[in-house]
Simulated scan of single mutants.
Amino acid sequence: MNLTKIKDKIKHSPIWKRRIHSWMFSNARPRLWVKWLVNPFVFHHGKKAVIRRQTVMNVSPINRFHLGTHSTIEEYTIVDNGVGDVIIGDYTRIGLRCTIIGPVQIGNHVILAQNVAISGLNHRYEDPTLPIHQQGVTTALIQIGDDSWVGANSVITAGIKIGKHVVVGAGSVVTKDIPDYSIAVGNPARIIKKYDSTINEWILAK
């Protein structure tokens, strides 16, 4: 049985999930033996990839973590793959004090400015007789396409797909997918410009 099949079996067993989580984590953070003895052998870091010293890496082998070639994660950012893979492409820069909670896929040549929050996790809340933290979570993959730029203090919500060469204005809250070659701003974010390849210009969205 290969490692992938073992992971799948554990994920579908609530008892084993609790046991493994307790063994590998303390207060939602990987134990030191996981960080120093396991992670270096299972996570991929591309050539000249940089993770700054003050970055908080809440990552473990439970899910994948990949940082591409020449990519950088700046100081005080939090990366958490506890509920889903975190995949970051090549030549991508994750700015200061960002939060990235999987499942998240970020493409190549992407720029995240400071204080961007990207979370593929949501807490369940439907049962009013239970505290929200006792109701579990749901996850939905967030995808950010190649060559995109997400402005400072923006929020990308679970399940969103941002296309290629997209600009998200500072302070935006993205609650709907954004197609390729678009500029979106606001809360909730709306598309204000699109690139027209027939005239090679950015035009106002109708």
Results as ranks from 00 to 15, higher is better:
Gly89Leu: 10
Glu126Asn: 06
His133Arg: 11
Lys47Pro: 00
Arg124Leu: 10
Lys7His: 04
Leu37Gly: 08
Gly84Thr: 03
Gly151Ser: 04
Lys48Phe: 06
Met57Gln: 03
Gly136Asp: 01
Asn122Pro: 07
Ser60Phe: 01
Val104Phe: 02
Ala140Gly: 01
His165Pro: 00
Ile111Asn: 02
Arg93Asp: 11
Gly171Ala: 09
Phe65Trp: 00
Arg190Tyr: 14
Ile100Met: 02
Met1His: 07
Asn58Lys: 08
Lys7Ala: 07
Arg31Phe: 02
Tyr181Thr: 03
Val185Asn: 02
Val110Tyr: 01
Arg18Trp: 09
Val116Trp: 06
Val173Asn: 04
Lys35Ala: 12
Val59Pro: 01
Gly102Glu: 00
Arg53Asp: 14
His45Leu: 10
Lys7Asp: 04
Ile106Cys: 05
Trp36Gln: 13
Phe41Asn: 10
Lys17Met: 12
Ser182Leu: 05
Glu75Trp: 08
Ile162Pro: 01
Lys35Ile: 07
Lys193Cys: 09
Ala113His: 03
Ile62Arg: 01
Asn108Phe: 03
Arg124Tyr: 12
Ser172Ala: 15
Pro103Glu: 01
Lys17Trp: 04
Ile192Ser: 13
Tyr91Leu: 05
Leu121Pro: 02
Gly136Val: 00
Ala49Pro: 09
Met1Ala: 11
Gln114Thr: 10
Val59Met: 04
Val83Asn: 13
Val155Tyr: 14
Arg19Trp: 15
Ala158Gln: 13
His21Gly: 07
Lys206Trp: 00
Met57Pro: 02
Val166Glu: 07
Arg29Gly: 03
Thr139Cys: 02
Asn63Lys: 05
Leu130Pro: 05
Tyr76Arg: 09
Thr99Ile: 13
Val150Leu: 05
Met57Trp: 06
Leu3Gln: 15
Phe43Glu: 15
Val137Glu: 04
Ala170Glu: 01
Arg29His: 06
Asn187Asp: 15
Asp180Trp: 03
Asn58Gly: 11
Gly145Ile: 12
Ala117Asp: 08
Ala28Gly: 07
Ile118Met: 14
Tyr181Leu: 08
Cys98Ser: 08
Ser182Gly: 04
Lys5Phe: 13
Gln54Tyr: 06
Val86His: 10
Ile51Ser: 10
Val59His: 03
Ser26Asp: 10
Lys35Gln: 11
Leu141Met: 14
His109Tyr: 09
Ala158His: 13
Asn81Ala: 12
Trp23Arg: 06
